[in-house]
């Protein structure tokens, strides 16, 4: 097998597995930049995946056909945004410990989604399979380009490109707009931001809800491109992997994008390595734990220091020094 053929397997499958991680970790960038730690990304992805499954099934039923999964992704984004409001209210307004609230959010999402699945689908522990998932396709024209085409544009889904595009949009929003400046200032020094007339509480709410929307979309993309049905083990660690990507990417949209792609690469290698010479000798456990080990190493500062926003994790109480 030539190196070219290896690339033709690895790159598309990396793009596929990375897309949900990219969306979710971008959501994480918004919330943590605003100063709210969100351990609940996993739960938000669960809600997104669950909503996408139910919505796609319902839309298919009412004749939306191939549009159903796309609409479902949007609905899942809304659902994730609404669900994240719980975290926002509890951790921002009620000043609960953000990690505690995030842990509870994961609990609630896991319990609630399966509870509802059982309720809607008569006691079964999983949803039926959706018929119209977003399939891997060859993108017209672009896939015909020699060399680049087969690697990047064959057997891919549009969602992967949307995810990469989203990273650029997020970067622009966070670093090139007044809104982004306010968001970051609230996460670095809320008291200073407050004296300058920025509504700290409102900015943090926006940050958390954006993470909910992106997390919901991430979960939905995972469902409509990869698993096609929702059950207990659909979202098993994807959200925490996205959290790792966020930290590994040093709280920066491009960092999160790069880290997600890299983690997607490691994950897809652990699945496809059987087909690839030399790699099939390597136990897949190394590839599975690689993202987490590397994140730990990055955090120790051997590979450039990763520093969280200064006020990340601290509730803002007016007048408190």
């Amino acid at each position: 097998m030539s190196f070219f053929e290896v690339l033709c397997i690895i790159v598309p499958s990396t793009l596929l597995t990375a897309a949900p991680l990219i969306f979710t970790s971008l959501g994480g960038v918004f919330t943590e930049r605003s100063g709210v730690v969100n351990i609940g990304l996993e739960g938000l992805m669960s809600v997104g995946a669950f909503t996408a499954a139910v919505a796609t099934l319902a839309l298919e039923h009412s004749g939306f056909g191939a549009f159903s999964p796309w609409l479902a992704i949007l609905i899942a984004g809304v659902a994730g945004g609404i669900f994240s409001l719980i975290h926002a209210v509890v951790s921002i307004s009620f000043r609960a410990d953000q990690t505690v609230s995030g842990v509870a959010l994961n609990f609630l999402a896991a319990g609630l989604t399966i509870f509802l699945v059982k309720l809607i689908y008569n006691g079964g522990g999983q949803t039926p399979y959706i018929e119209n998932n977003i399939d891997k396709i060859n993108i017209p024209l672009l896939s015909k380009i020699p060399i680049i085409g087969p690697i990047f544009f064959q057997q891919v889904t549009y969602t992967s490109y949307l995810a990469i595009l989203a990273a650029f949009v997020c970067w622009y929003v966070i670093f090139k707009t007044p809104f982004g400046l306010r968001l970051r200032s609230v996460g670095e020094h809320p008291a200073a931001a407050d004296t300058l007339g920025i509504n700290v509480i409102r900015m943090r709410y926006i940050g958390v809800v954006l993470s909910g929307i992106f997390g919901g979309i991430g979960g939905a993309v995972y469902l409509v491109t990869i698993t096609s049905n929702y059950n207990v083990s659909t979202i098993a660690g994807q959200g925490f992997l996205a959290l790792a990507a966020l930290v590994f990417g040093k709280w920066h949209p491009f960092g999160a994008l790069g880290a997600s792609l890299f983690f997607g690469f490691a994950q897809s290698l652990s699945i496809t390595s059987q087909q690839i010479p030399y790699l099939d000798q390597l136990p897949s456990v190394y590839l599975l734990i690689a993202p987490y080990v590397l994140t730990l190493i990055v955090l120790t500062g051997f590979v450039g220091r990763a520093v969280a926003p200064k006020a990340d994790g601290l509730p803002y109480i007016k007048g408190q020094r």
Binding site: I86, V90, F94, R95, A96, S101, A104, F107, G111
Partner: peptide, 13 residues
């Protein structure tokens, strides 16, 4: 699980 999650939210708040 839902009840446990809610209890954590309430204790946390």
């Amino acid at each position: 699980q839902i009840i446990i999650a809610l209890i954590i939210f309430f204790v946390g708040s």
